[in-house]
Simulated assay, not measured.
Amino acid sequence: MKKCISFLTVCLLMAKLTTAQIIPSFEFGVKGGMNLSRFSHTATFATENRAGYLGGIYARAGGLGFNFQPELYITSKSVTVNSGSTQNKATFTSIDLPLLLGTKIGAFGVGGRFYTGPLVSFAINKDQNVGDALGNALHLNYKDQNLAWTFGAGLDLKKVSIDFRYEYGLTKQPYNNGNDETRINLFNLTLGYRLFSL
């Protein structure tokens, strides 16, 4: 009898794990967190990690073991650049649009996620305000914008999600009054909250 109960329990658990990824699902939520940014190494300048922030929304649609997760958030990326005795602090504010593809394992509201995908960054500066940057993001206007590639992992606990990711800059950012340019690489740690799901 104990063997039958154990076998039935294992079968039900496996069924739950399997159907958790096969049945199509959708969720929408908010997220916020912090980042550590750094210029890629240069021979002339030394850089230090500096903290920034990010906040926005995400959606996740999944089925057959995979999910697609687009996000839209505002982010501030800061870096300190040292050149001899001179120290300059640079801050970049942007609207970021990651388009992530991943997979999820787990059941009963608890699971782990692994994902990767491109990120398009729409700069906010003196020539482009938040509304303009958001308009460019919604119309997928890629001209003069920055690209990165994202790798990450996440943990879901019921309605709460924790994500840790690395962004590798694909395009170069100007600095030193536009005389030099380099890539910005980021580590992000975010906390998300699911507002609703289907």
Rank of each mutant, 00 (worst) to 15 (best):
F151H: 08
Y142R: 08
F164M: 14
L170F: 07
D163G: 07
A137D: 00
N141G: 08
W149Q: 08
L138F: 12
K159N: 12
L134Y: 10
Q128P: 01
K158D: 05
H139E: 07
I124S: 04
Y166H: 13
D132M: 07
A153R: 05
G154D: 03
K126T: 11
A148L: 03
Y142C: 04
W149Y: 13
F151R: 07
L155M: 14
D163P: 04
L147S: 10
N129I: 14
K143A: 14
G152W: 04
G131Y: 05
E167W: 03
F164Y: 14
K126N: 14
N146W: 10
A123K: 06
L157I: 15
D156Q: 15
A137T: 03
I124Q: 04
D144Q: 13
L140G: 06
R165K: 13
E167P: 01
N141E: 08
A133G: 07
N136T: 00
A133H: 04
S161H: 10
D132F: 00
V130I: 11
N136C: 09
A148Y: 07
G135T: 12
K158M: 11
D156V: 12
Q128N: 13
I124L: 05
Y166V: 09
N146G: 07
A137E: 00
Q145Y: 06
A123S: 11
I124D: 03
G131P: 00
Y166C: 09
V130F: 15
G135V: 02
G135I: 06
A153H: 06
F151P: 01
K126E: 14
L140S: 02
G135M: 06
D127E: 11
W149T: 06
G154Y: 02
S161P: 05
F151T: 01
V130L: 15
A133L: 04
S161K: 08
V130T: 13
D127S: 13
K143I: 08
K126I: 02
T171R: 07
E167F: 01
N136D: 14
I162D: 03
H139F: 05
